[in-house]
Design a protein around this nucleic acid. Structure first.
Lengths: 335, 335
DNA sequence: GTGAAAGCGCTAACAG
DNA sequence: CTGTTAGCGCTTTCAC
């Protein structure tokens, strides 16, 4: 039963024959004699005592909880990121509270909750509308940082891959392999990731004197990407290379190609972005621009910790270069 | 800055010209006159006031936080489950605190944290050693329920698919298609899921008068499953059908087959378990026993809520039947 | 329907 | 090094 009375610091103090402050000190690293400490810990173990976080939070104004807002998790990039952020935060003694968002409709309640759960800080990895949530957090003096999707136009702290560079890098790869008819399957229109990747890509393509790539919106969904790919294949001037602005869509595009009898890596070059685990599976062998996830998370967490520690973060937006991983899906020259 | 003073109930009370008790009532659904309520909410909005969860928790002994322990998330089943649990809990006003575990080594700290974070309850979906954590929770009077991996030998609340039935169902499917040389790639040895699925499968196979399936341990990992599959293919009496006890390993097995020039759905039948999203992708078209995720989560959450509400849960372990989804990877008859 | 008052369990001065 | 004391912000009797 949940109603069984938990022991308090007083119970422990009594059993150990000390004051409750001594107990508190023992558990917070204050100065206690070794002997007292020993008695306290023994008593605590006996009573199965653990300091109540609720009371502690009330006093210290710290919950050791960080909120993480993400969109739905079928894009494998997010589970990977969640796992790594969780690990990194755990080292600092923090835990993640999950807020899975599904779109604009849920905006208000999410903000309300994010701010209501007495979190120490918030990481926003949730795509398009995150910027608005971020502003609310700033207003409410809640430490916040945007991850992956950022808002360059504001001073809101953010960490992302260098998406523009990533787009460029993929473009250059296509160009080197002799492609001339090139397309890109874009993501949700107002996400910074899609915009930047597409922009970098297009700039490099036209900079090389090639015609502007055909852009089709895949909306960051499996269905959208499949449709986009089919539309591309149906064109009289079908592209020989297509850049999907994330791997999630690239997998779907590959599937669409296969169904149409077009073989990626031979008949058409496909590249993605994120380099999620699946990209390396032999069934896909997807060329992908790898986000520097480790570095991104390291920066994200340490900046958030600094904010929580009271240091204002005026670093703004930070873009870290990644690395192109070339695999079979694009590793050939056009004739 | 994190240090900006947040408004308290007193501030709101003062601005609204009422007592702080009135403010509290307004926010907890107590009886307040409409007029007062209006003034209070107006004042709260103006001050950007939100009741502090920490203080509330201290008083009510409820945090509206539920812990979720899971192993690493590369098995796509878990992200799917997390997302759904998060949604279901959100309806009840609860949020998920994530504890990503990585094995026995981390057992103690995880327990300590799980119990230390003043959670209202805990969901254990974390595989093999979850049972020990569960017992600790029970001892500590922390409402707990095991999900997916359960412990039938104890009275610890648990919800899972009917894994035995699932294994049987897959076996029957193979048998109907005329397979005689059958193998299974198993998971971590002491996980109830792997044991039950394998057991149900083997029982049905030998019940049909066929020789016992060859068992190879894939350890629930991509690498393990690939090795297992390769070992299977190398045998003189290589199987014509293999059951992978989860989809995660099945994908890897499919990859291994393809690399060996053996085509799933034609040369060999492959089936998985979980029916994760990817299973339906054309690149895999994996036959899989679908876990009844919706029902499982519904039961899991409502039982946990009951426990949190103070009702002892003596339902024990609960297994819900799923459904076989037949796809190309196994949809053929042996000659 | 409303306010006053008493804590929830803890930490952090403060004095010894 | 140790105990006493005063709250953290809220909910909740209890009178009115």
């Amino acid at each position: 039963m949940a109603t069984l009375k938990q022991p308090t610091g007083i119970d422990v103090a009594r059993l150990a024959g000390v004051s409750k402050s001594a107990v508190s000190r023992a558990f917070t690293g204050g100065s206690v004699s070794d002997e007292a400490r020993q008695r306290i810990f023994d008593a605590a173990r006996e009573l199965r005592y653990r300091p109540s976080q609720a009371a502690r939070s009330l006093k210290t104004n710290r919950s050791r909880l960080v909120g993480l807002a993400v969109t739905h998790l079928d894009n494998q990039f997010y589970p990977e990121v969640i796992e790594r952020i969780s690990d990194t935060l755990a080292i600092e003694g923090y835990r993640l509270v999950l807020f899975i968002t599904r779109g604009e409709a849920e905006l208000e309640p999410v903000i309300y909750e994010l701010l209501g759960f007495s979190l120490d800080g918030v990481i926003l990895a949730s795509g398009a509308f995150a910027a608005r949530v971020a502003h609310e957090c700033v207003e409410a003096a809640m430490p916040v940082i945007m991850f992956n999707n950022i808002d360059k136009s504001s001073q809101i702290p953010g960490v992302s891959a260098d998406n523009t560079l990533g787009g460029e890098t993929v473009a250059r790869h296509f160009i080197e392999r002799g492609h001339k008819r090139i397309a890109v399957i874009t993501g949700v229109a107002d996400s910074s990731t899609s915009k930047d990747r597409t922009e970098g890509f297009c700039r490099a393509v036209s900079g090389a004197g090639l015609p502007m790539p055909t852009l089709v919106n895949g909306n960051y969904t499996v269905e959208g990407a499949a449709e986009a790919m089919n539309a591309l294949l149906a064109r009289p001037d079908a592209p020989t290379a297509v850049f999907c602005v994330n791997d999630h869509m690239a997998f779907s595009a590959i599937g669409a190609c296969q169904q149409a009898g077009v073989q990626p890596g031979r008949d058409i070059a496909i590249a993605g972005f994120d380099n999620v685990g699946i990209a390396g599976w032999p069934s896909f062998a997807l060329t992908s621009y790898a986000q520097p996830v480790t570095a991104m998370i390291e920066r994200c967490v340490s900046r958030l910790m600094a904010e929580i520690g009271g240091q204002a973060d005026d670093t703004g937006t930070e873009c870290i270069p990644g690395k192109l991983i070339i695999r079979q899906s694009s590793d050939f020259h056009v004739p």
